[in-house]
Each structure stands twice: as C-alpha cells, then as structure tokens.
Design a protein around this nucleic acid. Structure first.
Lengths: 104, 104
DNA sequence: CGGAATCCAAGACGATACTG
DNA sequence: CAGTATCGTCTTGGATTCCG
C-alpha cells in the first residue's frame, strides 16, 4: 500500500484525509479508551455505516486498536496505537488554528 | 459561515478538509506564486473542474490570492494570503509525519 | 490559458433491517 | 450494542465544449 504513493504528504493524507478521520482521532484521544456508541454520540452527524467504515480503515492503517469483548450485547473499545498517537500533534495544531481563526 | 461551527477543529477542517486542499497549498507554498496551469501540471490526478472548484473555495475562505492578468490568452497567478501562510505549519507537519511513517 | 456550463457516470452516503 | 448488507438517493467528479 505504501508503494501507492511517491510522496510522503500523499501517503499521510490517504490515512488522515477521510472526511471524519481527524474528528474521530480527536475524540479517541480525548477519552483514551472509548466505546463505539460513545464516539457515535460525540459525532451525531456521522452515520452508523460511515463511522464503522472509517474506524475499520483507521484500524487497518494501524492508527487505532479495536478491543472487542465477546459478550452479548457486544462491547467494543477503541484506543490509539503508537502510530495513532504520533498523529495527535497534527490534530492539535489543526484545532489550534481553528481557535485562532474562527471568528466568534 | 463561521457560525456554522460550534467547534474550532470543525471550522478548520471545513477549510482544509477538501480532498486536494492540502496538496494545493503545498504546491502554492513551494512556488510562492504559481499559475493555474502549473498547479495542474504538479497534480495531474486532479481534473480541471475540481482544481478550479477547490481554488475558488480556498480563495473565498481567504486562504489564497487570485491575481488575474487581463490578457488574451488569460494568465492567473495564485499565492498565499497571510491566513494561508498560517496554514503552512499544518501542511509541513503532515508531510513530516508522512516521511517518518512511509515505509519505502 | 483559465474558467464556466453541461451532461453523464461513479461512488459516497443515509436509512433500514438483520445478526451474534 | 456493534457490525454487516442491501438499496435508493444524491452528491461528486470526469470529459467535453464554449467563451473572453
């Protein structure tokens, strides 16, 4: 997969460029360990289907852990991998820029 | 428009979250002043229409200047505004992350 | 050359229902 | 509760054309 990209910035954007990825990382980092339903509650605009998809992609890119408890009803917790943690400075700098430039 | 968002990170993502925005900013910053056709040449995968759209959005968000020379054939140069420059640290940190994590 | 407008295809998304 | 699958909709994007 890495061979798809000739250029580092495109590799990075392929991982974090998804419409909700930064917001999802932002929330996982905030709560450290967070259940699926809790993420959904924090990001109401995202649909069930899309949230699942994006989490799956983040997992397969090695950004988040998925910890499944084999219970009924199911319980799944998400948290950041080391690679995921290394993205947090990006998330934070984007947030800071927003704070400085949002006029309200 | 700013009132659309309750949260800084969403405001920021609305501006830079577009599929090609970061790549476009990356290129404008690299050349400081760059013509439309030159951007197109640097990002061959983006179509004429989409590049125009994204540039227009970046212009209306106050990120890039559009400098039109009234000639035939037309000549249009793009450059970063101050607000646009303030986004460069974000672009660079994303690039750095890509360099560290791209395995090739 | 850069941009607007058109038309059409591809794919993203939401809603829903079903499973363990 | 979390995830998958299906389906219909609707946005997005590409190709093309025309204009200044």
């Amino acid at each position: 997969m890495a061979t798809k990209f000739n250029c580092p910035i495109r590799y990075a954007l392929d991982i974090i460029g998804g419409r909700w990825k930064i917001i999802i990382l932002w929330n996982i980092n905030k709560y450290k360990i967070i259940r699926y339903g809790e993420i959904k509650k924090r990001i109401p605009e995202i649909s069930h289907k899309v949230l699942s998809q994006q989490l799956k992609e983040l997992e397969s890119d090695g950004i988040v852990y998925r910890n499944e408890y084999y219970e009924i009803p199911p319980k799944v917790e998400y948290s950041l991998t080391d690679k995921g943690h290394s993205l947090i400075p990006i998330v934070e700098i984007i947030n800071e820029w927003g704070q400085k430039n949002m006029s309200c």
